[in-house]
Design a protein around this nucleic acid. Structure first.
Length: 290
DNA sequence: AGTCGGCCCTGCGAGC
DNA sequence: TGCTCGCAGGGCCGAC
């Protein structure tokens, strides 16, 4: 699925293409795409104007304005494993996995939610005003992502070292740090020379700082390349894919040489998916944790 | 309360 | 060619 850099690419596109436009229609083609809504999507959206495009971690949302009223709700999106938000001319034929289409009063390009695996969804929800930041209520419990002002490095270090788990599982826990998924977790761990099963309680403060710096640098570089894509499943709002997969050190590179030491990259099964690491740079710890 | 496994889906490529 | 299997970038929920 799109992780933080890919979602940020989509957010930027949405900001350009839908901010300031009034919604005129909403059509749901697959119920799973709107499964968390309590009402009819069109009833919730039509007549409201998109204010901007916001993001925390892997979640996107479009704050909605009713004429003359304060902004209290947002259309939130999570892309899941295969979701895309595309700007398409209304006359263009439907994509095979088109789930929702949202039209605008100006008759210009419509917003289409296309999602092969239907893990993603759209949800209209109230915004929750917090001292640090206003976010949609359903994601008020997830942590800031490491590019937000409100992300507190020292607090993160304390929290992760209190966990009784493996460092990769902790990195993927969106309530501890948001935005990091399987690809960037593996890449950040490789940069910080940490094995994925390293018990979090054995991490030093210095190592946690290194890991955070690695996560930030790899995601910043990926954003600069337009994100990571192995196929056509991840694209920006214009349907273009990024190139960062060419810059990955270990992810998806089983048996290829580690760019640092040349040892063949190893793949381990992990939480029903994969973990890639260098056996020399990232030795398996004794008493490793999943 | 914190931790962890199972499960929600569809499609694609590898191997037989 | 056609089947089955394993795998895919996530997160929610229930069981301990």
């Amino acid at each position: 699925m799109p992780e933080l850099p890919e979602v940020e690419v989509v957010r930027r596109g949405l900001e350009t293409w839908v901010a300031g436009r009034e919604i005129a229609s909403a059509e749901v083609l697959h119920p799973r795409a709107v499964r968390r809504n309590t009402g009819d999507l069109a009833d919730l959206l039509v007549g409201r104007t998109v204010v901007s495009a916001e993001r925390r971690g892997k979640y996107l949302w479009l704050p909605l304005q009713d004429a003359g009223s304060p902004v209290e709700d947002a259309l939130m999106a999570h892309l899941g494993m295969s979701g895309q938000l595309l700007m398409i001319e209304p006359k263009e034929p439907a994509e095979k996995h088109l789930r929702v289409r949202i039209g605008f009063a100006d008759g210009g390009p419509e917003l289409r939610f296309v999602d092969q695996r239907t893990f993603g969804h759209l949800l209209v929800s109230p915004l929750s005003v917090r001292p640090s930041r206003t976010v949609p209520e359903p994601i008020a419990h997830i942590a800031p992502d490491p590019f937000e002002e409100s992300f507190d490095d020292a607090e993160f270090a304390i929290k992760i070292r209190r966990r009784q788990t493996g460092v990769k599982r902790a990195l993927l826990d969106q309530s501890l740090i948001s935005g990091v998924g399987n690809i960037y977790a593996d890449e950040a761990l490789w940069r910080a020379r940490l094995h994925w099963a390293r018990p979090t309680e054995t991490l030093t403060g210095k190592k946690v700082a290194e890991l955070l710096a690695a996560a930030r640098s790899v995601m910043t570089e990926a954003l600069g390349e337009g994100g990571t894509s192995f196929d056509r499943l991840y694209v920006n709002v214009n349907g273009e894919s990024g190139y960062f997969d060419r810059s990955l050190a270990v992810y998806g590179r089983r048996d290829e040489p580690c760019p640092r030491c040349g040892a063949p990259v190893r793949r381990d099964a992990f939480m029903n998916r994969s973990s890639y690491s260098c056996p020399k740079c990232q030795p398996r710890p004794r008493n490793g944790r999943w």
